[in-house]
Amino acid sequence: MQIHNISNENSILNQFIAEIRDSTIQKDSMRFRRNIERIGEILGYEMSKTLTYKNVTVETPLGTTPTFLPKSDIVLCSILRAGVPLHNGLLNYFDDAENAFISAYRHHKENPETFEIIVEYLACPNLEGKTLILADPMLATGQSMLATFEALKPFGTPKEVHLISVIGAQQGVDFVNTNFPENTHLWIAAIDKNLNDKGYIIPGLGDAGDLAFGEKLQQ
């Protein structure tokens, strides 16, 4: 796997990361969603540099000019619900992308510190030979990302796979690095060192889904 940690470079991305982490600023759920969306735009832009392009001629009112446009067939899949703002940011840049949505959540059993990933809803187009983008803002253990990838396999084999995350734990990064195909790319805005005993990223930012859309009742 090729890992692209965009935070290793100084850019305006650092401003958006700082704001979604800030416990005061993140109370503004609209700003939180917009910052996740903007991070998705930046990660999508960086990812776009690796796509396949074709040479085309564009006709202007005064003549013609050559340019290069992407020719990859993209399917953008986000994990509900926290992935929606990130999905929107990517879709802002990949206008013609097909879309897939999947629900994957942690189901805690008797021990609140252990869980399994449950997939209940899935809507997906044909993936055969296409570029698959899997978007999930928080890459904690990596199990949700892998469960999503496994659930998508009946829809075809993509030509290439790109994982997009906002913040990840090193443990989660190592997990996907081990369990995804070798030619997978991970695009991530920041990598933190630790997970706590409940599988949350430290320092992280908290629960991205709750911060974006409000707290949920636990089942």
Rank of each mutant, 00 (worst) to 15 (best):
I164E: 03
G142C: 06
P203D: 06
A190C: 04
V166W: 01
H162E: 09
P158C: 00
K130Q: 12
M145P: 15
E215M: 07
P181N: 14
V166Y: 00
C124P: 01
K216L: 15
G199R: 09
L134R: 01
P125T: 00
K216S: 13
K159R: 12
T178V: 14
V161W: 02
K159I: 08
Q170C: 05
H162L: 14
T157I: 12
G206E: 08
G204D: 03
I133S: 04
K159M: 05
A140Y: 04
L134E: 13
G129L: 05
H162W: 13
P158W: 09
Q143D: 13
N177Y: 04
G156Y: 06
A212M: 01
E215D: 15
I191S: 05
I133W: 05
K153C: 06
G204E: 08
T131N: 09
N194L: 13
K193Y: 07
E128D: 15
K159L: 11
F149Q: 14
E150N: 14
T148D: 08
E128F: 00
F180S: 06
L163H: 07
H185M: 05
L152F: 10
I188N: 03
G168H: 11
T131R: 05
E215Q: 14
D136G: 05
G214P: 10
L152S: 07
N177E: 12
F149P: 08
E160M: 06
N194Y: 10
L205M: 07
V166I: 12
W187P: 08
L195Y: 08
G129Q: 01
G156H: 07
L132A: 05
D207P: 02
L146K: 14
I167T: 11
A147W: 08
E182K: 00
G214D: 10
C124G: 06
M145Y: 08
C124T: 15
N194E: 15
D174L: 08
P181C: 10
I164P: 02
G172W: 00
D192W: 07
D210R: 00
A140K: 07
A189R: 00
G129S: 09
I164D: 05
L205Y: 01
G142D: 07
H162I: 06
I191G: 01
I133G: 02
E128G: 04
L146H: 10
A135Q: 08
F180W: 03
K159Q: 13
K159C: 05
N177G: 12
K216V: 11
V166E: 02
N179C: 06
P125K: 00
P181G: 14
I167M: 09
P158R: 04
N196Q: 03
A147L: 09
D192M: 11
L152H: 07
G142I: 10
V166R: 03
P203E: 11
I133L: 14
N179D: 15
L163V: 13
L134Y: 05
A208L: 08
Q171A: 14
V173I: 12
V173E: 02
G129W: 05
L146M: 13
S144D: 09
C124D: 09
I133A: 02
M145L: 14
T184V: 11
D174I: 09
G209D: 12
L195V: 03
F213Y: 15
D210I: 00
G156D: 11
L195F: 06
L132E: 10
E128T: 09
D192L: 03
E150I: 15
T148G: 06
G204V: 12
L127R: 04
